[in-house]
Design a protein around this nucleic acid. Structure first.
Lengths: 330, 330
DNA sequence: CTGTTAGCGCTTTCAC
DNA sequence: GTGAAAGCGCTAACAG
């Protein structure tokens, strides 16, 4: 055998040679799985590996094992992750089970399939889809992979999904308003084309009906701060006793336009947001909102990554309960 | 040759066979680089590949080419990326040159080296280091890679770095204050242990001196909103004519504590932040700040990824100019 | 221009 | 328990 060129990384063959065993034995001794190797040889191999500073080449390993310990996180834009806390915890947890995260920003969805195919992302073990650029079937095809988890609110007969159960939080928010004597409300919505949004709107309406709150205006925005501002300043605006927004960003826009009217003791209306984004930590936007337990949510995602059996049976839907977070805006 | 099992992905051998050429020819025809192949054979290969729905296995390719088209983005916590716009553009640009992004959250820096070694991240083509958990030498070793770009403000004799040149922006901010008749100032700083922060503070002081502005208090926070609030409410606080904070978050905290005093025409003091975070888009935090051109910054990073020659000569330092962004807080 | 051949580094039969 | 050998899918070197 050729002596190793010193600038090369040692391979498993080098380790085997130094330990005086075959490559197969070295491979087994170094495996994380239990494999039959005698105790003394295992010891010699580990010792040799350590001495050489051997690092396995995971590309080569993946070629035979067909697994790369890589998880794709698919987003439309980074702003899909405006919830930095959620994402921070998610990455941290994924890393703690020994997997790494490859980040796929879909953006225009234009040449994304071609892009994917030209990268390692194509070989991920699983894809966590926050983006709504495509349905589960397309994503599965794009990743050559059945391990697709839909986190974008889209449902699919064959793909598991984790979706916050919004009814509980909405019911609590509307009840909060009713308990404070609210009789009329305005609803500020996002893109109503999305099924998630339609369900959300339906929940608000049915809860209002239950409490005898009259819906006097329904205004359509696009979830953004700017759209909230625009609607609040538009001629269509009417100060109902409560304003329910289907995103916190829109609520922030509404708040900024009507800040003076909302600050005194005799507030013009009660304001409710949705998402419970961390911005509420800033004093200027104390918006009552609807959130969910991120720890639970992420635990479910991890379940999917570690114990797929539970999700295997097709389009399993896991619901994470939401709750109402009262703040001074209401 | 064994007929393909239909549930397997077609390999380049299948393509070659169908096209009636050797694997080498198929490989060349499918290569993105210009390789010698006759026109008709190339055509046949492409046709066959299309017909079979052939997708190259990049793990296998990487094994010989020693390149994975993967870039690691190393952060401490996700909050290092509080600037979502910057990150969004960065990912987008990296993807546009055909590379994918693997995300490494260092967190505690505890077992990070072991973690890395067990994943594909260990094989990245380059690492962009936003985290300050380790020096360049350590990062190079951790990634088995010399292509390390320091974006955390740390300097190293051997590693290239891109660092905003903060003097220009600070000079403009202080000049703005001086031009408005400011004669006294308070400086709210972050962790002064960091060399970046020390330089920043020195710049503020020298510029104040130049304009004859007296520094009447220097308060130490930790960059966070909460620390800004705490300092602004503390007994050490003094309302100088201007308050310079070395982060926007701290400025937001200061603003919230003194909002009433700052809102009228006769403002208690002029407030300056640093970073130009996107929060300034919200009306409640119209903080004059210091920013830099993200497009330029990212262009430099891309240069590093695409034309490394320019950076090859060791510890090259690229400076990106900063500028002052006036808003109503000053 | 083309095909043969030899690997890349690792894991896994399959006999012993 | 062990090792020889085959092979994962691809590209590169080398003759033609």
């Amino acid at each position: 055998m050729e002596p190793r060129k010193s600038d090369d990384q040692p391979t498993i063959a080098d380790v085997a040679e130094l330990a005086g065993v075959s490559r197969a034995i070295a491979s087994r001794a170094l495996s994380s799985e239990p494999r039959p190797v005698s105790a003394d040889k295992r010891e010699r191999v580990l010792q040799a590996a350590h001495q050489l500073g051997y690092k396995p080449n995971l590309l080569a390993r993946s070629l035979t094992t067909k697994t790369v310990n890589l998880v794709a996180v698919v987003v439309n834009h980074i702003h899909d992750l405006s919830d930095l806390d959620l994402f921070d915890l998610l990455i941290s947890e994924i890393q703690s089970i020994g997997k790494q995260v490859i980040f796929v920003r879909v953006g225009s969805a234009d040449r994304i399939e071609e892009f994917l195919r030209n990268g390692i992302a194509y070989h991920v073990d699983a894809a966590l889809v926050f983006s709504d650029f495509a349905d589960a079937a397309t994503v599965r095809r794009m990743f050559r992979n059945d391990r697709v988890l839909m986190l974008n609110g889209m449902r699919d007969a064959d793909a598991p999904a984790i979706i916050p159960d919004e009814l509980s939080g909405i019911a609590a928010a509307v009840a909060d308003a009713a308990g404070k004597g609210v009789r009329t409300a305005t609803l500020v919505t996002g893109r109503s084309a999305s099924p998630v949004e339609q369900t959300r709107i339906a929940h608000y309406k049915s809860e209002m009906r239950r409490h005898g709150i009259e819906l006097i205006a329904e205004l359509r925005g696009d979830y953004s701060y700017q759209s909230g501002r625009a609607l609040a300043a538009s001629s269509a605006w009417r100060n109902a006793e409560a304003v329910f927004c289907t995103s916190d960003a829109m609520a922030m826009g509404v708040l900024d336009v009507h800040r003076d009217a909302l600050s005194g003791d005799a507030r013009a209306f009660r304001l409710y947001g949705f998402d419970d984004v961390t911005l509420a930590e800033y004093e200027a936007y104390p918006i009552s909102s609807i959130g969910y337990d991120k720890t639970v949510y992420i635990k479910e995602i991890l379940q999917f990554l570690t114990a797929p059996d539970r999700f295997q049976s097709g389009g399993v839907l896991v619901q994470v309960p939401t709750y109402f977070v009262p703040r001074s805006s209401s």
